[in-house]
């Protein structure tokens, strides 16, 4: 149980570090943290683990391969998430710039029609 919890805590800390370094956008990390907490708790329940294994026919299959696959996919997903976070930030910067240009045009038009402000 200690090792299972240690893995969950390590994953959670790694996720928080990625968020703190700005590599993953904080909102994107929320479902991940929920999943880590939920799976971390469930993994400490042997009855649930056995039930889940039976449901998907993993009772004596090479579990190590399954876990290796999951970790490779986790790596891919993290890389994609970091890329998505960077793209999203660039998109937000472009939208801000676009808004600044459009509002500047409107501001000029507004000032040319408005009476001078008092004070």
């Amino acid at each position: 149980m200690v090792i299972k919890l240690a893995i969950a805590v390590t994953l959670a800390v790694a996720l928080i570090l990625l968020v703190r370094r700005g590599l993953i956008q904080v909102d994107m990390s929320f479902p991940w943290l929920l999943a880590i907490v939920a799976l971390g708790i469930l993994s400490t329940q042997p009855a649930f683990v056995e039930w889940a294994a039976v449901q998907i026919d993993i009772v004596y299959a090479p579990i190590a391969i399954v876990f290796a696959t999951i970790f490779i996919l986790l790596g891919f997903a993290t890389t994609l998430l970091i890329g998505y976070t960077r793209l999203r930030q660039r998109q937000l910067d472009i939208v801000r710039r676009l808004a600044a240009l459009e509002l500047e045009r409107q501001e000029t038009a507004l000032r040319s029609h408005a009476p001078p402000a008092a004070g």
Binding site: L92, V95, R96, A99, A100, L103, E104, E107
Partner: peptide, 14 residues
């Protein structure tokens, strides 16, 4: 958040 940034940008620039 982005709405606030846009307003702050515009207010500061004009």
């Amino acid at each position: 958040g982005l709405c606030s940034h846009i307003a702050f940008d515009h207010g500061s620039a004009h």
